[in-house]
Simulated scan of single mutants.
Amino acid sequence: MRMLLTSLSVFVALAVPAKADRVVTETEGDKLISALTAQGCTGGKMEWDDDDREFEVGNASCNDGRSYDLKFNTDFTLKNKKLDD
């Protein structure tokens, strides 16, 4: 019985797909552009991260001449700004 439950648990874990990032909507994109501009940045790849429940902008160009990965809350407030490696 234990072996059956263990096997079933592994099967369910593998069968349930992980949530993936998605492209932001037009409205979300407009708000992210405003939030990026407020940080002195432009461009980058914008996504919604389902796992972390946050917006991510990868490889944004900022006014110091460097590229950053930025994360924003659902209210488009900056959570994290990390130098892009």
Results as ranks from 00 to 15, higher is better:
residue 73 N to L: 03
residue 9 S to C: 15
residue 80 N to V: 10
residue 34 S to L: 10
residue 73 N to M: 03
residue 38 A to P: 09
residue 14 L to P: 02
residue 69 D to Q: 02
residue 14 L to N: 13
residue 13 A to E: 05
residue 20 A to E: 07
residue 24 V to A: 09
residue 38 A to Q: 13
residue 9 S to F: 15
residue 40 G to V: 08
residue 85 D to W: 05
residue 54 E to S: 06
residue 52 D to L: 12
residue 1 M to Q: 09
residue 56 E to D: 13
residue 18 A to C: 09
residue 56 E to Q: 11
residue 84 D to K: 07
residue 25 T to D: 00
residue 22 R to C: 08
residue 59 N to T: 10
residue 14 L to S: 14
residue 8 L to E: 06
residue 12 V to R: 06
residue 71 K to Q: 07
residue 24 V to C: 04
residue 26 E to H: 06
residue 75 D to F: 10
residue 43 G to R: 01
residue 82 K to R: 12
residue 68 Y to S: 04
residue 42 T to L: 14
residue 36 L to G: 00
residue 76 F to S: 04
residue 39 Q to E: 15
residue 76 F to M: 12
residue 36 L to M: 10
residue 43 G to D: 00
residue 30 D to M: 12
residue 32 L to A: 02
residue 55 F to D: 02
residue 32 L to T: 00
residue 8 L to Q: 09
residue 18 A to N: 05
residue 11 F to T: 11
residue 24 V to K: 01
residue 54 E to G: 01
residue 65 G to Q: 09
residue 46 M to A: 12
residue 35 A to N: 06
residue 1 M to H: 13
residue 75 D to C: 13
residue 32 L to S: 00
residue 75 D to A: 12
residue 19 K to I: 10
residue 46 M to T: 01
residue 78 L to F: 07
residue 78 L to K: 12
residue 76 F to I: 01
residue 40 G to H: 14
residue 55 F to N: 00
residue 22 R to L: 03
residue 50 D to G: 05
residue 2 R to K: 08
residue 55 F to C: 02
residue 12 V to T: 13
residue 49 D to A: 09
residue 39 Q to G: 03
residue 85 D to G: 11
residue 63 N to E: 11
residue 40 G to A: 12
residue 29 G to F: 01
residue 54 E to A: 04
residue 35 A to Q: 03
residue 39 Q to K: 07
residue 20 A to T: 10
residue 29 G to M: 02
residue 81 K to A: 13
residue 66 R to K: 14
residue 74 T to P: 02
residue 79 K to Q: 13
residue 36 L to N: 04
residue 76 F to L: 09
residue 39 Q to M: 14
residue 40 G to S: 10
residue 16 V to C: 14
residue 77 T to C: 06
residue 63 N to V: 06
residue 32 L to M: 10
residue 83 L to F: 08
residue 64 D to I: 03
residue 57 V to Q: 01
residue 24 V to E: 01
residue 22 R to G: 12
residue 64 D to L: 01
residue 84 D to G: 04
residue 49 D to N: 14
residue 6 T to S: 09
residue 24 V to H: 02
residue 24 V to M: 02
residue 61 S to K: 11
residue 57 V to I: 15
residue 27 T to R: 07
residue 2 R to C: 06
residue 73 N to A: 06
residue 52 D to H: 09
residue 27 T to A: 15
residue 61 S to R: 11
residue 24 V to Y: 04
residue 27 T to V: 13
residue 37 T to H: 13
residue 44 G to S: 07
residue 24 V to L: 02
